[in-house]
Amino acid sequence: MFERRSALAPYLAAGGRDGANGARTLRISELRGWHLLQLAAFDARGTHFRNALTSLIGAELPAAAGQQRPCDHGRILCLSRGQYWVDSRDAAWLADLSRAIPPEAGAATPLSHGRVRLAVEGAVARALLAKGIAVDLHPSVFRVGDFAQTALHHTGILLERCAESRYELFASRTYSASIWEWIIDAALPFGYDVRVEDIGDNK
């Protein structure tokens, strides 16, 4: 009955444009079909939380901040000591996980609507992101699978290198239009295509 409407719907409709040399060397996408849960341990109950979570997701937790591991129905990222994001295509499983976290061990906070997820792909993706992100994106430093909590256009984002020339970023929903405008402005000399990428299970 109720429909989801992306914060970027009016902006995606504008499509892409050619770059300075008439080509389009970037693809900028909004990703849909994902779900996000933030989990945070209470300090005194860290062991209890880790044990419970390990059992629930069927995988060991990442050892330190900045690391991620696959788990049942998705993956788990360690953002800081005792704080995790679980990224899954299965909304129902994530909801069950949220309810299953012992309330005395940790907090579960859904963030599936609070973030927008974008992908920037192409040989010049790194050059585009370097215009505004103060992270060393050299391939030998920011490797595939690495992610960083950083800032773009004065707002906090999480940036991840997903493949050789593909980066994804999570931006706050209320700032997402401004972030989108920043990205396509930075992409102007390169030329870009725009698309929606459904990465969910329920296509």
Binding site: A41, F42, E104, G106, S112, G114
Partner: peptide, 12 residues
């Protein structure tokens, strides 16, 4: 000493 976590939900 308090077992509390806070998270912003303004965007959610």
């Amino acid at each position: 000493e308090l077992d509390v976590q806070v998270a912003s939900l303004t965007d959610e």
